[in-house]
Design a protein around this nucleic acid. Structure first.
Lengths: 193, 193
DNA sequence: ACTGTTTCAGAACGATCGTTCTGGTGTAAC
DNA sequence: GTTACACCAGAACGATCGTTCTGAAACAGT
């Protein structure tokens, strides 16, 4: 058991937080459980992050960066404007199936629900997620809907959020397929107009 | 201050629970705060409900019944098949603007997020909400999409859930309008097919 | 070998919260 | 007037949890 291959405690904590907090619930997971799973002492956590909330906020920032990268790949790989806009659903499928990023549904919406009126850091992370989605979807909607791009972007954002809510609800069975179809019909509606 | 006009403690508790729990957060609201706002003693709460979770479950059941009634009214008042399917968005607008039913977003999805692995009663309430939505939307989709009614119902359910998630996210600004447009384009897509 | 840094295990503290207990008041039926 | 029931105020208990403290081990750079 050499220490050579061992990742630093901070990294282990972040990975464990991402894996456990957003899958079992943020408030439902006590700090002690994180410490046990990450094999880290309490003192180390609090020297690195200062509080559980700050760890949550940092885990959200990392998650957003990862998600953004996955989404990027699927946008650049898409063939045409429609595929680029709908790439968000393909990215979601890949991101969710990735064993390194389990989650009951959306980590950001879960944080907003579980932790109302807490650290500003967490609100900021949620705002950053929403801003990324809104800006990108608007940008990707422009070539398809022109002046009506904002409406189309709003609709695709709703289809995205509805897909996430469907995971929480457990219905329908294939949320991503339904979400993609929904967004697709929104695109067709705007192209005709 | 005669006692004549005073509602029974059980009713006051349920009304307060509906108003406070789902607006400020279920876990974020301590029992003591409910007791203070309902002007009820702790002993009374526990003789009537047995636990906070049971009170939450009962409040969810009442909320579902109220929501179902409002939705009903809008379905029967609708002019044609399309309006009947989209009536769920009009009902949402009315239900949300009703001062007696404030909420940060959806009480059922919030309960599922805030209280994972708790009382079965609460899971049952969420399941009942999803079942009501799924069955009704499927029924209302039949005259519009025939054999593809399930797909259309899934899509409208996603648009509905996305609208709720948009309230939590704060974006877009007018979620119900966007949700309605989204569902409308789904209907048109299925009518053409 | 010395020093600074990182990390550890584990106990302890303090606050919050759900729940129960004690003892009692007010009201309505008979 | 007594019995029964609904309700009250407030203290108290027990459990959980975030956080801090104590004291020490492992390791890196010089």
């Amino acid at each position: 058991m050499t220490t050579a291959q061992r990742l630093p405690a901070r990294t282990r904590l972040l990975q464990t937080a991402d894996r456990v907090l957003f899958d079992r619930g943020i408030r439902a997971t006590p700090v002690d459980e994180l410490l046990r799973e990450a094999d880290v002492s309490a003192a180390t956590l609090y020297t690195h992050f200062g509080s559980k909330d700050a760890l949550v906020a940092e885990a959200l920032r990392v998650r957003l960066a990862d998600w953004r990268a996955v989404w990027d790949q699927h946008v650049v790989a898409a063939a045409d404007d429609t595929a680029r806009l709908l790439a968000v659903f393909d990215a979601m499928a890949v991101y969710r199936s990735d064993q390194h990023h389990p989650a009951r549904w959306c980590a950001f919406l879960a944080a907003a629900t579980e932790l109302p009126e807490t650290a500003d850091e967490i609100d900021d992370a949620l705002a950053a997620d929403t801003a990324l989605l809104a800006e990108r979807l608007l940008h990707l909607s422009r070539p398809l809907a022109g002046e009506r791009a904002q409406d189309l972007a709003d609709e695709v954002l709703l289809a995205y959020g509805g897909t996430l809510a469907a995971f929480l609800r457990g219905s329908p069975r294939s949320p991503i397929e339904a979400g993609r179809r929904l967004a697709h019909s929104a695109v067709r509606a705007h192209r005709r107009a």
